[in-house]
């Protein structure tokens, strides 16, 4: 396994980076928008959930487009942490902090997604509890869960949008300092937008 990873180093890194944007990033945006139906009340929300749950080939899509990419991204993300020796306190440049946060938020996101998937996808599937507005709202009664979701939301949005910035560098799209600076602004705007959408939806369940 180790040898295989070493031999396919370039490919794995590139897939890891690509998966973070497509499909994971795209799915994230879709998911946040779907959540926002919670703003229109339980009925609308439940209707949309049912629609999604009624999609053909749902399980295959979930596995192929969501679970496997996340698994791959997470697995190698954790492996890559091995090469991380932080020095952002000593060399306190903003890019260095963003590099550090990318790794911290990645780890938080991993725990968050694990909990989230277990709670709202696997556990419900095993026990037959219906997934709907009330289930989410019920879970948020516990302030710890709510704060965890808040933290998870911030982490995921940061990890994704800063990841987009890195992706653009990593794939050689933004090369010069000016292009990278502009992409910083664009990614920050995207991040703030997604954060608003995500948190606003979170509040809808309180």
């Amino acid at each position: 396994m180790k040898k295989w990873v070493q031999e396919h180093h370039f490919l794995i890194r590139k897939i890891h980076s690509l998966l973070g944007v497509v499909p994971m990033g795209v799915f994230l945006m879709e998911h946040l928008i779907t959540n926002s139906f919670g703003k229109f009340g339980p009925e609308v929300y439940n209707e949309k959930i049912e629609w999604i749950q009624g999609l053909p080939y749902l399980l295959a899509m979930e596995i192929g487009i969501i679970f496997l990419p996340i698994l791959f991204h997470a697995l190698f993300g954790v492996v890559f942490l091995w090469a991380w020796k932080d020095n952002s306190l000593q060399y306190s440049y903003s890019r260095n902090w963003r590099y550090t946060f990318q790794r911290v938020t990645g780890v938080i996101a991993l725990f968050f997604i694990g909990y989230h998937v277990w709670k709202f996808r696997i556990e419900t599937a095993l026990t037959g509890i219906p997934v709907n507005f009330d289930l989410v709202a019920g879970a948020f009664q516990n302030p710890l869960v709510f704060y965890f979701y808040f933290l998870g939301m911030v982490s995921i949005v940061y990890h994704f949008t800063n990841g987009v910035w890195s992706f653009l560098v990593h794939w050689g799209i933004t090369v010069g300092p000016r292009a990278q600076q502009i992409s910083t602004y664009v990614c920050a705007a995207l991040g703030l937008g997604l954060l608003y959408i995500g948190l606003d939806a979170l509040w809808a369940f309180v």
Partner: peptide, 30 residues
Amino acid sequence: EDCGNAQNCVRVCPKDIPLTTSIADLNRKT
């Protein structure tokens, strides 16, 4: 691929070498 994009390198280079531009350019080429 082991570059983590912390970009500290370019901040401390005493010769002001555009290191991060080099890396991004090589990302494109590779």
